[in-house]
Structure formats: C-alpha cells, structure tokens
C-alpha cells in the first residue's frame, strides 16, 4: 500500500474540500527529494519561457473547479429531463458541455443503472478517471486492491463499500483501458418525485457515479 493513502474513518463526510476530499496538512513538512524536483522542474520551465506561474495557477484553479458536484448536476438533469438523458447516453461529452462544464478533450460515456443492470468503473492498468468532469480520483480508486479485484469479484468489492446488488441484477464492469472515460448514471431513488433538480443533485454521491455507491435516499 503506497504510504500516502491516509485512511479515514468514514467515507462521505462533510468538511470536504472543493475537490471532494478531506483536507490535509500541506507545506510544513520536511522538503522531500520529489518536492525539490517539482520546484526545480517548474522553475526551469518558467525560466525557459515554456510556461508561466500564471498558466500553472490557472490550470490548478481549473482542476479545483472540477468536482463530483459537476457530475451530480449532470445526473440530476438526466433524472428530470428525458430528452437530456437521451442525449447524455448518446454522447456524454456533448451533454456535459451543453450544461456548461469545461471538460477539455474528455471522451465520456455514460452508462445507465436500471433494475436489470448495475455498472461499475475501474482502470486496471493505471488510474483513468473522468477527471475533467468529476475532479481528481479518490486514492482508493488507484490502489492495487481496487484495480486488481473490481474486474474479478465486483460483488465482493461492492460489499466492502456497503453496497449489495441483488442476484437478479447483472453487474457490468467497465475497464477504462484506452481513450474513453465512464460515468455511471445511477437510478433515481424512489420517493424523490417532488424534488427539484438542485435538490436531486445533492443525492448524487461521487461513488454513485463510479458505481461503488448508490445515491442517497431522501
């Protein structure tokens, strides 16, 4: 297990950063070799006029602005607007861009959970993730345990996330091996008929869009 993976007692907590992760200590630990390298590479690239501090800061801001809330808004729109849902399932990149999200060159495929199918996303070869919509992936997504087991024993892995999928529901695992990225369109929870789009979006968790969770119920 890589040593940067700080375990936390719970999973979907409040007090998360904008990128959907717990905060952690930043600049006050002893300087490491790799941090020294980052500073040096960055400064050399700036000195040579290949990039600028402003360009780097802007890129960080753009990434920070991407979070599971973006995906949740897309999911909630699909729950209330059947025509949008059709467009999302046809071309998730175009549908996300239509909502105003700057997803760069992300080639996104939305896969729909139904009464018959539960979808789940993994990248066994590295850590491909729809980062331009959902922000950076959680640490567990990049671990040996998840990458190794999600394709072989998805039901057992889901149990470890507290999710039980009934036997009659088929599991469809998506291994993001090449140029596509995937987002799960979870099924709209029962009892949400009167809820508006913004309220519905708050039910959509990051993990429900990876397929390792289900939306919250009201």
């Amino acid at each position: 297990m890589p040593h940067d993976h700080h375990d936390h007692d719970h999973f979907h907590h409040d007090g998360m950063s904008p990128s959907g992760h717990p905060y952690r200590a930043d600049n006050d630990t002893p300087l490491t070799y790799w941090q020294t390298m980052e500073i040096a590479v960055r400064e050399i690239l700036i000195e040579k006029g290949i990039t600028t501090p402003e360009e780097i800061a802007r890129q960080i801001d753009e990434m920070d602005a991407r979070s599971p809330a973006n995906g949740a808004a897309v999911v909630a729109r699909a729950w209330v607007d059947p025509a949008f849902k059709t467009r999302l399932l046809d071309d998730a990149s175009a549908a996300s861009a239509e909502m105003g999200f700057d997803i760069g060159g992300l080639r996104l495929i939305a896969v729909e959970n139904t009464d018959e199918v539960h979808n789940m996303i993994v990248c066994t070869l590295c850590s491909c993730y729809p980062r331009n919509l959902l922000g950076l992936p959680p640490d567990w997504y990049k671990t040996r345990a998840y990458r190794s087991r999600a394709v072989k024993e998805p039901r057992k892995v889901l149990e470890e996330f507290g999710v039980t999928i009934p036997d009659q529901v088929k599991i469809r695992v998506h291994d993001s091996t090449a140029d596509m990225r995937y987002i799960v369109l979870p099924a709209r929870p029962a009892g949400t008929g009167s809820m508006g789009e913004a309220e519905l979006a708050r039910l959509v968790t990051r993990d429900s869009m990876i397929g390792t969770g289900l939306p919250k119920t009201p």
């Binding site: 700080h6 200590a25 990039t51 990434m63 345990a145």
Partner: peptide
C-alpha cells in the same frame, strides 16, 4: 493488475497538497 489477488479495498482518500496539484498541472 486486473484479476490479481489483493486485499480488501480500504476507502482511503486525501486532499491534494499544493505541490501535488502543481505536478498535476505540469
């Protein structure tokens, strides 16, 4: 790694430090 034996998935995560975000940006 697909299909290789491995332990339980621990729900670990952390927010990214500034230097990590800079690596990502680079």
């Amino acid at each position: 790694m697909g299909g290789q034996p491995a332990g339980p998935v621990k729900p670990a995560e952390h927010d990214f430090a500034l230097w990590e975000k800079r690596v990502d940006a680079l």
